[in-house]
Simulated scan of single mutants.
Amino acid sequence: MNEKSVETIQFEMATLVRYVTSVSSDKNGKLDRSGYLLLHRLSSQGSTGVKTLANEFHLDISTVSRQAAALEQKGYASRIPDPTDRRAYSYQITDNGKKELAAYKKERMNKVKNLLKGWSEEECEMFGQLLKKFNRSFS
């Protein structure tokens, strides 16, 4: 691996994080990035426990517990008791959570579409696939 390539990648990733953070905040304060990711996961793959979520997002259980509790307080997620272990529970997305997720996702999609206006469909497809491949390398 070429040292110059790695240097370019690491710098551009740092720059990307700064830009993404600046354009992805919800002005209404209803949903933040962590809430979006948790709701997206619950919506796309179904209910799951905090331990599984923590493993998937490479976070500690207490962090995910706080994030999930915040979603529960807003009415975006609800707890489902585990029938085999009364201490354990899973989270599922609520109807209100589905609505908020859809609205937040639409807003994010519009922002990304605007950023990619001058890109060809092929470039967008390649960029998406490379980002996906890169993100999977963390697993």
Rank of each mutant, 00 (worst) to 15 (best):
119 W>C: 11
99 K>Q: 15
91 Y>D: 01
83 P>V: 05
114 N>V: 05
124 C>E: 13
105 K>Y: 09
124 C>Y: 09
113 K>N: 14
91 Y>P: 03
97 G>Q: 00
112 V>S: 07
109 M>F: 08
80 I>V: 15
91 Y>F: 15
96 N>Y: 09
113 K>L: 13
88 A>W: 04
86 R>C: 02
82 D>E: 06
71 L>V: 06
75 G>H: 14
94 T>S: 06
77 A>Q: 00
84 T>A: 09
93 I>A: 01
101 L>W: 00
85 D>R: 07
87 R>H: 13
71 L>F: 04
92 Q>C: 03
96 N>M: 12
83 P>K: 05
72 E>P: 04
120 S>D: 09
110 N>M: 12
77 A>L: 01
94 T>K: 09
78 S>I: 03
109 M>S: 06
100 E>P: 10
94 T>V: 10
118 G>F: 10
100 E>N: 08
110 N>K: 11
78 S>D: 10
86 R>Q: 12
98 K>M: 12
72 E>Q: 14
77 A>G: 07
123 E>D: 13
103 A>E: 15
80 I>G: 01
90 S>E: 05
105 K>E: 07
95 D>S: 14
112 V>R: 04
88 A>C: 02
86 R>V: 05
78 S>E: 14
76 Y>A: 01
70 A>Y: 06
106 K>M: 08
122 E>P: 00
108 R>I: 15
122 E>M: 09
84 T>N: 10
